[in-house]
Structures are given as C-alpha cells and as structure tokens.
Computed example of a mutant assay.
Amino acid sequence: MAEGVRGRSDSRLTERGRATRERILRAAADMMHVKGVAATTLDDVRAASGTSKSQLYRHYPDKDALVRDVVAWNAAGVLERQRQQLRRLGSFRGLERWRDALVERNALHNGAHGCPLGSLASELADQNEDARRAAAGHFADWERLLEAGLARMRDSGVLRADADVGGLATGLMAALQGGYLLAQTARDVEPMRIALNMAIDHVRMYAAASGGEPPESGIS
C-alpha cells in the first residue's frame, strides 16, 4: 500500500486484510480518476475490486472514508514519481526532462483524465473540506520539490541570485495544472506542452550570464 495511506485499524490487519484494502483502494482510485468522485459509487468499487459488501464496509464504512484514502493514495504515487524526477534537478535541461516525462505520461490517454491529484482536488474543493485541505498540503509538497530544484539552480549559478525560486515554482505548478486541464478538455497534450514551455521560458529570464547553459527557448 502506498506510504501514508493507512486506515485507523491498519496495524491490526492481517496480510490478507491489507491486500483486500489495497485492492479496494486501487479500484476506487482508478474509477474516481476516470469517472470522477460523484459518479463512482461504493457498489461500483465493490464490483471492480471483486470484494463482498461485508469486506468493503469493514474497511470503508462510508464513501468519505474511501475518498480520503484515495486522495492520499493518488498523492503518494504522484509525489514519489516527482521526487524521483526532481531530486537532482539542477539545470534547464533537467526542467525540460521533467516537462517531457509529464507530457509523455499524460499522452498515454491523450490527456483525457487530467492530473490524478488535480482532478480530485477540483471536484472535491467545494464538497469535502478535509479532502480539500489534504490536497492543498500535497500540492504544497509538490511545489516544494520544484522550489528545491530551482534553489539548487540558483545556488550553483545557473539562475541569478535574485531569482524568486518560490514564485517560479508556483508559476511552474500553475502552468502544469492549467496544462492538464486544457489537455483534458481538448483530448490533446499539446496545450499542456505549450503551457509548460512558456513557464520554463519564464524561468530562463532569470538565467545567470555565466550559468553554464545557453538560455535556449523551450517553445518549438
């Protein structure tokens, strides 16, 4: 099970019980990402996960409990991938590789389903305050990964000393999430690529004169 996604009685579950919970959670996360939270019922999840009603309700007595764990599950997966991609970010080429990985992953479904975390956050923001706060915290963690990479670029002389790495990280995150939405509605990842290219080009405006990398344009 994804790190940080544990119910109140998880420590007392048998190995079989943990496997059942993970199966339920995987099915729910997939369905909510594709269909949306509102359109996904507990009966849908039960059928998709191959569990009985008693098994489902033993782990998730109501939909709110399941939604909370789905948010945490999606966030754990997204953030782990982002840590792997951003932990050594220190150059413009690294930013381009980060962009390419996100766009290519989203292209697998022609951008149809959006960001696994952002889509949930958008749907739940006005309906479930606990889920909204949790999603906001996960987005802040994601943004901090970007900020840390940009700080390494600044500290190594790739970016100017006066670069506001926090603001630049927010701009990259906004471009990414807006790009996900445009790709989802257009069923085409090109708007996402363009949004990220423009955000990276904005970061290039803060390239140090002797940063060791030519300030190449990201827009083809």
Rank of each mutant, 00 (worst) to 15 (best):
P191G: 06
F139G: 08
D155W: 05
V70F: 00
R21F: 02
S52Y: 11
V37G: 00
D126N: 12
Q184S: 14
A135H: 04
V158L: 03
A112D: 11
H109Y: 14
D30N: 10
V5A: 09
Y180P: 00
D30V: 15
V70R: 00
A186P: 01
F92C: 08
G149S: 05
L172Y: 08
D100M: 06
L66R: 01
A134C: 09
Y57G: 05
M1D: 06
R99D: 05
A47T: 12
S220L: 12
R93P: 03
L86E: 11
S52Q: 10
I194E: 13
T51L: 04
E143H: 07
G4N: 11
L145H: 09
A2G: 00
D69A: 05
L95Q: 06
K63S: 07
R152Q: 03
A76T: 03
G218C: 12
S91W: 12
R87A: 15
L196W: 05
P214K: 04
V5S: 03
L172W: 08
K53L: 10
E147V: 01
K53A: 14
E123M: 01
D201G: 09
G77N: 10
E96F: 10
I200R: 04
L108E: 15
E22K: 06
A134P: 00
V165F: 00
A28E: 02
L176A: 11
E80P: 00
A135G: 03
M1E: 07
R83L: 01
A65T: 14
A125W: 07
A183P: 03
A136R: 04
G212E: 10
S122H: 10
A163H: 08
I24N: 01
A72H: 02
L159P: 10
L79I: 11
G157R: 09
M192Q: 13
I194C: 05
S217M: 09
R87V: 08
R99F: 04
S49F: 08
P214Y: 08
G7E: 08
D126L: 13
R93Q: 15
T51A: 15
L120S: 03
P116G: 07
L182Q: 13
M32W: 05
R68K: 07
G157Q: 06
A208H: 15
Q84K: 14
D43L: 12
M32H: 01
L66H: 05
P61V: 02
R8C: 00
R18Y: 01
W98L: 09
R83P: 02
A72E: 11
L79S: 08
L196K: 01
S119V: 11
N197L: 01
D100W: 07
Q85G: 08
K53V: 12
A174P: 00
